[in-house]
């Protein structure tokens, strides 16, 4: 998503100037998306150029508030009505990493899966701690952001479990087996994986 829609949504509440917008943006994303004031002003300038916001006269303190226009409102309504597409998100590096781990000789895929699992679990624990600290009555927007991150991390855990189960089913031998074509004599013996080392 772009900052643009965030600012339009905030201006829908009423006219605001740059610093107010930045504070409101950070508040509504629970500080997960820090903005610098330059990004706010660049975006406002672009929105004004496209006729989606209008600048109002400066206040005595020298602050220039902006208000949303009808065109801006239509753009915002369109954004809320359109689902986010998976293709808008960056490629999943983790999926690619696991696929490569599976086909790269000498890589213990289960150890790769487990390393990721522990890291994702840590993330889940931290989000949960933040959620436990938040107040259900006052922090609902922040909780929704946290829930989104929690569910994503949970989905990743499930996917990792699924990957591991598939590995067990399809490759019962230790994951250090090499492809037939690799001339064993020219390859050094594989170092024990972390997992094997732990089991000793």
């Amino acid at each position: 998503m772009s900052i643009k829609f965030g600012l339009l949504a905030l201006l829908e509440r009423g006219a605001m100037y740059g610093y107010q917008l930045r504070a409101a943006f950070e508040e509504s994303t629970g500080g997960t998306w820090p903005l610098n004031i330059g990004q706010v002003y660049t975006t406002l300038t672009r929105l004004e150029r496209d006729g989606q916001v209008r600048s109002l006269p400066e206040s005595d303190a020298g602050q220039r508030p902006y208000e949303i226009t009808e065109a801006g409102r239509a753009e915002l309504a369109m954004w809320f009505a359109t689902p986010i597409s998976r293709t808008d998100r960056p490629r999943d590096e983790l999926a690619i990493k696991l696929a490569l781990a599976l086909t790269t000789p000498g890589v213990d895929v289960r150890a790769v899966v487990q390393t990721q699992r522990a890291a994702t679990m840590r993330t889940l624990q931290e989000y949960t701690r933040l959620k436990a600290k938040s107040d259900a009555s006052t922090d609902l927007p922040w909780r929704l952001v946290l829930d989104a991150m929690l569910f994503q991390a949970e989905a990743e855990m499930r996917w990792l479990d699924h990957c591991e189960a598939s590995l067990v089913r399809h490759r019962p031998a230790p994951a250090t087996t090499r492809p037939e074509s690799a001339p064993a004599t020219t390859q050094p013996a594989p170092a024990p994986s972390e997992e094997e080392a732990r089991q000793r």
Binding site: W33, P90, Q114, T115, M121, R122, E126, Y127, R129, R198
Partner: peptide, 19 residues
């Protein structure tokens, strides 16, 4: 096979890459 305790720096989770 593994265990997962709290992070040393939980705030690093809130830095969204590519934000």
């Amino acid at each position: 096979v593994d265990s997962s305790g709290p992070l040393a720096q939980p705030e690093q989770l809130l830095a969204v890459p590519g934000a």
